[in-house]
């Protein structure tokens, strides 16, 4: 299967988020998206949103899965997990099948439904900046440290330490540590994640394994199936050839000249009589 490359990650600590929306604005500026008026949901104009529920702010964005479902389903490899961690998109490869939208367990990729030639839009973890050793625009502007950028291992360690130090402040769960095989965005919250609308039944294995167990059998099916079909047809046709050698008149005018069934039956009877006489 695909290798897991932990790479860089983002740690979101919702308990520290003050809902200022600086990350939204920085993101829009970085990627040339219409920042005003910000919508309250992800769309092709919005790679990330800050929302509020049960008195706590929280954020939504692409999770940059370690083994991304979107990457595994894209037929043309238009989505790619880079070594540094970001899951990026190549619009020139994309055919617009939207399987990535269907398959993403977090419903992240969005589409430009109004455009004649639409492309997929989603957070790409500021790939350009990250590649050059920088950090993401959102983590860079965050005034409180609710959004931090760094190596995944380090951020995980920080998260665990925080929960241990302030058990009353957090639910004892780091969202993204194991979800669908682990994600590049890690989240901490004081409110249960289910209340914030994050799916909780995703399991700890990459979803692509579900498909791969079937896909990996295909070469076997092809080889066995091919031999089987070839064999069956050869045996049956050899038998028929032997039995009815002179029942089907040779191809005339290029048309396979199969005689009407009744005539064929008569001839079979005749043929059997003859062979009976001979034998």
């Amino acid at each position: 299967m695909q290798e897991t490359k932990p790479g860089k990650a983002i740690l979101l600590d919702f308990t520290e988020c003050i809902g200022c929306g600086a990350c939204e604005q920085a993101c829009a500026k970085e990627h040339g998206l219409p920042a005003d008026p910000p919508e309250d949901r992800l769309s092709h104009k919005n790679y990330t949103v800050v929302l509020e529920n049960k008195g706590q702010h929280y954020r939504k964005m692409c999770m940059h899965c370690l083994v991304p479902t979107c990457v595994s389903v894209c037929p043309v490899g238009a989505l790619e997990k880079t070594d540094e961690g970001p899951v990026v998109y190549h619009p020139d490869r994309c055919i617009g099948c939207r399987y990535c939208m269907m398959a993403c367990p977090f419903q992240i990729p969005k589409y430009e439904w109004e455009k004649p030639v639409p492309v997929i839009r989603k957070c790409i973890m500021c790939n350009e900046r990250v590649k050059e050793g920088g950090e993401t625009a959102c983590s860079w502007v965050c005034p409180t440290g609710a959004c931090r950028f760094g190596s995944r291992e380090k951020l995980l360690a920080i998260a665990h330490r925080r929960i241990k130090a302030f058990p009353d402040r957090y639910v004892d769960y780091i969202y993204g540590e194991t979800e669908v095989g682990g994600t590049g965005v890690l989240m901490m919250s004081g409110v249960p994640f289910a209340d914030l609308g994050f799916p909780e039944d995703l399991g700890t294995k990459p979803l692509s394994e579900l498909t791969w167990t079937v896909m990996s059998k295909i070469p076997n099916i092809v080889i066995t199936g091919g031999l089987l079909l070839g064999g069956i047809s050869w045996i049956i046709h050899r038998r028929m050839d032997i039995e009815k050698e002179n029942l089907i008149s040779p191809a005339r005018n290029g048309q396979l000249n199969i005689k009407p069934v009744e005539q064929l039956d008569k001839e079979i009877v005749k043929g059997e009589e003859q062979s009976g006489k001979e034998g």
Partner: peptide, 21 residues
């Protein structure tokens, strides 16, 4: 397909992990 003119892409751009491919 949103980008119907790219329909031939699976011929040259491969992703054997994709059922769609």
């Amino acid at each position: 397909l949103g980008k119907y003119f790219n329909i031939w892409h699976p011929l040259v751009m491969w992703n054997p992990h994709s059922v769609m491919f």
